[in-house]
Design a protein around this nucleic acid. Structure first.
Lengths: 199, 199
DNA sequence: AGAAAAAACCGACCACAGTCAATTTTTGAT
DNA sequence: ATCAAAAATTGACTGTGGTCGGTTTTTTCT
């Protein structure tokens, strides 16, 4: 049963997250103070910290939620029998679009998830695992169709393509590749990944 | 001519950097305050900020220096006619060893360089370019020997392998792969990169 | 050498992330 | 309805990153 208490907690949490989205998007992560965020959410500053351990954790929680949502959306858009490269492009460009629209969130999230201060906790891996779980069937099918080598572990295939995706994000964040060229670059790199570097 | 002023500046800068290395290594980046760092360096707090724009910039400057040094060292250790995979392993494992020994520096540096808040400045690219310049001849030779496809741009080859290296670093920072297994994992992934994913 | 200009240095100060003890609200038992 | 325990809320407080105007040191010019 969902007690009154639990209901309120949920509401407050959502309220913090909503305020965070508004403010971080409008003013940027660093320029938004927790005090301001609390005011916007109509609560005290201390309360924010009883919901989230740190300011960065707010971003993490928001992105984890979004990722879960995006995943369910995406599953519907791709057909596992399309050519692998096409499926991957749909998935990654959707992700990328999200990042470009939430640059600050994406950056903080990537910092936390890719090069974290402490090894990731069990729950953090879960999000990543769920994401991989979505991709596994796609690679599996591609293996079955003969688009991918069967002697490779799915984890390695997955990791490899994820690496290329991260690189593209990095190129975008550093300004090395402008937004409008990312699609093309991503296609080149993923294709190259599949084809291999050797003659 | 190196004036007295310039000499002092150099000395002070080095002093700050040395103190930073000592303190950040001993207590961690976050736990070391600039005030403490200034005290250790025997200067005022404000002075630190006339040498470095932010706390993170101190790390960036240090790592840029180190990277330049490491590069010159490395050039001597590799023979451009060794098999590509062996050369890459020597280079990346040397880099990796450095990161494991300076975890905090590496993390902050990676945040700044891989997913920076603002697009990288000209000078930041220079460091990266210099690094690539070291690698290009290696890939070039490997192409000549027939170990790599000749129809691929060096930039793409370079970027691709860099992506895999970043992934390995990420796996280490997240705790997904323990230190002693990184070498093996790196070899597997780089080999896979060269071979390609398709049958 | 002496004065004026330029560069370097400094620590008091500000804004903000995160803490915590005191207060208020909710719950569950009688 | 009453009350005691548990949970949630709060804002004053602490420590630190970064700023800035005033001070000292170095250079340059005569």
């Amino acid at each position: 049963m969902t007690s009154r208490r639990e209901k309120n907690k949920r509401k407050t949490r959502k309220c913090i997250l909503d305020s965070a989205v508004r403010l971080f998007s409008r003013k940027g992560f660093d320029k938004t103070s927790i005090e301001e965020l609390a005011r916007e959410a109509g609560i005290g500053k201390g309360t924010v910290y009883s919901y989230f351990r740190t300011k960065r954790d707010i971003v993490k929680a928001f992105c984890d939620d979004q990722l879960e949502f995006a995943r369910s959306e995406l599953a519907a858009k791709t057909n596992p029998d399309m050519p692998l490269i096409e499926q991957l492009m749909i998935i990654f460009m959707a992700d990328f679009k999200y990042v470009t629209e939430n640059k600050e969130f994406g950056r903080v999230y990537l910092h936390e998830k890719v090069f974290p201060q402490e090894p990731l906790a069990e729950e953090d891996f879960q999000v990543q695992n769920d994401y991989f779980d979505m991709l596994y069937p796609i690679y599996q099918r591609a293996q079955d169709r003969g688009e991918l080598r069967k002697d490779l572990e799915l984890l390695h295939i997955s990791g490899h393509i994820y690496a290329v995706y991260l690189l593209m994000l990095s190129c975008w964040y550093t300004g090395m590749i402008p937004t409008e060229e990312i699609g093309e670059a991503m296609k080149v790199m993923v294709t190259q990944t599949i084809q291999g570097l050797k003659p």
